[in-house]
Design a binder for these strands. Sequence first.
DNA 1: TTGAAAGCGCTAACAC
DNA 2: GTGTTAGCGCTTTCAA
Lengths: 335, 335
Amino acid sequence: MASDRPPRPATQSDVAREVGVSRTLVSFAFRGAPGVSDETKQAIFAAAKRLGYRPNAVAADLARKHRSAVGLYLLDIRNEIYADILSGVRTALSQEPNRLILSVSRSVDGEDRGAVESLIEARVGIIIAATLLDPDEAVHEMAASVPLVSVTRPVAGVDSVYSDDSFGARAAVEHLLTLGHTRIAHLAGPAHDGHVVRRRSYEQAMRRAGLVPQTLCADDFTQESGHRAAARLLGQADRPTAIFCHNDQLALGTREAAYAMGLSIPRDLSLIGYDNSRTAGLHGIDLTSVDLHAARLGEAAGQIALERLRNPEAPAADRRFTPRLVVRSSTARPA
Amino acid sequence: MASDRPPRPATQSDVAREVGVSRTLVSFAFRGAPGVSDETKQAIFAAAKRLGYRPNAVAADLARKHRSAVGLYLLDIRNEIYADILSGVRTALSQEPNRLILSVSRSVDGEDRGAVESLIEARVGIIIAATLLDPDEAVHEMAASVPLVSVTRPVAGVDSVYSDDSFGARAAVEHLLTLGHTRIAHLAGPAHDGHVVRRRSYEQAMRRAGLVPQTLCADDFTQESGHRAAARLLGQADRPTAIFCHNDQLALGTREAAYAMGLSIPRDLSLIGYDNSRTAGLHGIDLTSVDLHAARLGEAAGQIALERLRNPEAPAADRRFTPRLVVRSSTARPA
DNA sequence: TTGAAAGCGCTAACAC
DNA sequence: GTGTTAGCGCTTTCAA
């Protein structure tokens, strides 16, 4: 109800006046700083409650010299790995008092400086960014304004926490090769800096096996784009017997496209995704996928962020995790 | 690189000094306010760029009288409907300059005042909350500190945007009744205020049909909880032939539990979810589900928030949408 | 243990 | 079109 809301929210001064102490003490009391007697504290909290006082984080942030808030940028809220990364970051920060400010990209198809800018303007002390699609120079530019931890993508000279995409992609392709596939296509996302590792690794593995790589780029990383792109790929005369997709969403889209064309998985088409999302493991989906341990990446990123806040001059961290191929029944020998 | 970062970020004053004008003009220029000559504007932007100036949103927020930021609280980042709600809210706000501040609950199992508090402390002008699990009084308390729009849950006297859960649940149960089921169980989430509508509606529909309702509450709204609860339910001697779940995640967990016990869907068990998430529509999942049009709820909530900001005294909005049962192949006549 | 006072970087009257 | 000025609510020395 709008009507019974006070016109002006209570401030520290109001509480101080009510109790008959100075603002300083109220400030100390609320931050749990030492030097306030227990009685005073009680009186302050009681008065605060009476007045409906809420600390103003905006004002506190402004007054504080040291910026300790952590900004977290997430590329795609519909992709589970970002939820996992968020959990991981929270785990890492849970013991610390740092505030976490979230920023989710509004474009699924590429660079979104706006979302990161808003974090910079919110004056966070450090930004954890998962996943940056911007060109390397742009990332360096951002990192010049505020410390940055890049998650899922290594950037030279910038704190980076990522999974070995080269290893993951190779494992996927080799799995298909071992099964006897030769017409293996790759469904990539749009080609952004730092997002071509899986693709390059796929292409290398193919060439090393004496095969011709065929890469198709989807418009973005969503299931819908995957569906569209896969429809093209599968409509070809000499269609591939296996497709390795940049992520699970593209793979799920591919799967729908295949079924829509009357193809069966894995009989007519073997399929591999990347992320090992919950959906991939569902009965009836059983999608072979590469697990990049997103929650662990997030946790590591959170720890690195805290260290960076403590020590701005330390050399850039570079933490690489090894992914794991999870084989399910979406892959089999070619017919 | 940490080393080439300036110790103190540039401020409006720095830019003003560099250009040789007053801070006011810099402020006006950056906000696009009228009254700054084009030349001056150019000079200001050039200087800002040179100095690496970034507006400080924290300071701006503090100085501004009128709070226009919109805070969005999301209960569960892993549930697609919240991503849909976010999209909808963004659509509604896209024409307006209001900043959107996100807050995601850290507990999936219940009330999370902390996440809402942080929004209050961030001094947002209004909070859009999806979904509040707190008791009614608690919601009223929050709404006393800051205008609130409750999404997916109607709260008397508070702006509410929701879907007709009673209708949705009835449609689900009636679908199962029509198919000939009599042992229909309901898998609910934990019983929170405002989250018993689907359950009550289920129970009513059952009684009306002369049947005995059997409701089981999962620990929270996740797939894992659904799995656990369903395992109990399906382990019974006289197990149900159909289960209507509070949401898709619980339904997917139920599905896994069923398959793990060697049951087949829909042959041995008919299953209905709620949310009509993307996963529900995948080939091989084909989950019958109730679509509550989350994106539309989000958009309506965004619009209502903007109106409330303009007119604090207007009577509380109450916008109810009608859901739609989407029948797929997870439901069939009992064996 | 407490208080006074000087900002933090910006906005928004208001005056020129 | 441009400048002056008084805060916004809080933190944080520094003194008492």
